[in-house]
């Protein structure tokens, strides 16, 4: 069989993983829209969501939806804690310090998870069984459809949050002009705090939806987080739609690459794309509201 025969199948797999990159990328964008911080611990939220759900399900014996809900709430609390304990004290620090602090938090979270939950890779049961559906010549796991549905719902609710509520406007304002927002009585720290909660929750949901298809383990978060960031930059840094588009493009390209190059090089594909996009079009496919004005 030529590699071309696999392409539809790989394409559908790429869409699924792309949805996850999109969700993680959205998490990055949410925080960046409220402040200039880039939270490199974002991938850990994905891993934590899946890990906590697994242990509530297996150890606590909670029903699946309840376990998932509790896990999301716990991860949101962890996100809040991350802001209060690490980023709030460093709110006036320079970029290298913030970068190192979030990377340090990422090391701490992933290795504490290994300590508490063990180092074995874990998986969650699929929501509706593992019987693949056959559509045309492609096999699709039902879980993929759930992943796509969740991405779509989260995107809509995030859009409504940022464009249709006062809170979203306030977040946007504190990002665009911190001083002006302060003068209008918008607490910048509160906005960043809330953004951390929202992005942690999105990460946790992404983790819970993806884990039935891909295993998760304590160190899986870093790479997913980085690729989510690549997705957000690829689509257009600072735009929700950019993160979604970038996530799907990245997922599909990465998945299709398996057909043509040795699979060991798969993880490098995302970073090669990153270097190319940063070199030729740093503002991403859809353009970025941040890059030109702030000269990042």
């Amino acid at each position: 069989m030529t590699p071309w025969a696999y392409i539809p199948q790989l394409f559908s797999a790429g869409i699924t993983i792309g949805a996850i990159y999109a969700l993680v990328g959205l998490g990055f964008v949410t925080i960046a829209r409220a402040s200039q911080i880039i939270n490199f611990a974002q991938g850990e939220f994905v891993m934590l969501g899946a890990m906590i759900t697994f242990f509530l399900l297996k150890g606590g014996g909670l029903p699946y939806p309840l376990a998932a809900l509790v896990a999301v709430i716990l991860v949101v609390i962890i996100g809040f804690l991350l802001h209060i304990t690490v980023l709030y004290p460093l709110r006036k620090a320079s970029i290298p310090i913030l970068l190192m602090a979030t990377l340090g938090a990422s090391i701490f979270i992933s290795n504490t998870t290994a300590l508490v939950f063990g180092t074995l890779p874990r998986t969650l049961p699929a929501f509706l069984g593992n019987q693949p559906l056959q559509i045309g010549g492609i096999f699709i796991v039902p879980q993929s459809l759930f992943v796509l549905g969740a991405t779509f719902l989260l995107l809509i609710s995030l859009y409504l949050l940022s464009h249709r509520t006062l809170l979203g406007k306030a977040m946007e304002a504190s990002s665009t002009d911190p001083l002006g927002a302060d003068l209008l009585g918008i607490s910048r720290n509160l906005m960043v705090f809330l953004a951390f909660g929202v992005s942690a929750g999105m990460g946790a949901i992404a983790g819970i939806f993806i884990t039935p298809i891909f295993y998760t383990s304590y160190h899986a978060g870093t790479l997913i987080g980085l690729k989510g960031f690549v997705a957000a930059v690829l689509g257009g840094w600072g735009k929700n739609s950019g993160a979604i588009l970038g996530g799907f493009v990245l997922g599909v390209v990465e998945s299709l690459s398996i057909a043509f190059i040795p699979s060991g090089y798969k993880d490098a594909v995302a970073f090669v794309i990153l270097l190319l996009i940063l070199y030729f079009r740093p503002k991403g496919i859809l353009g970025s509201p941040f890059i030109d004005s702030r000269r990042w």
Partner: peptide, 12 residues
């Protein structure tokens, strides 16, 4: 974990 914690504390 201790290493991560110490890095953060030192940075803060």
């Amino acid at each position: 974990p201790i290493y991560g914690l110490i890095l953060i504390l030192l940075l803060i």
